[in-house]
């Protein structure tokens, strides 16, 4: 049996990264756009990796 933290830790982190990315591009310019792209790419890459790994 897993604890709540073990189950929800990573999903919450992904949510934080996506939230940061969505807001950074809206509220900032220049470097904040770069930060937004990197931040949102991480959950997308993790999803692709787990889904497509053999």
């Amino acid at each position: 049996m897993k604890t709540l933290l073990q189950i929800w830790g990573l999903p919450v982190l992904m949510g934080v990264l996506l939230t940061f990315g969505l807001l950074a591009a809206l509220l900032g310019v220049g470097i904040w756009h770069g930060a937004s792209w990197i931040s949102m790419t991480i959950p997308v890459m993790i999803g692709l990796r787990h889904w497509l790994k053999r």
Partner: peptide, 16 residues
Amino acid sequence: DVHNLLGVITIVWVLV
């Protein structure tokens, strides 16, 4: 498993 994985990753984005 794929449904749960991709679903949980995209929560914030799909809600927004």
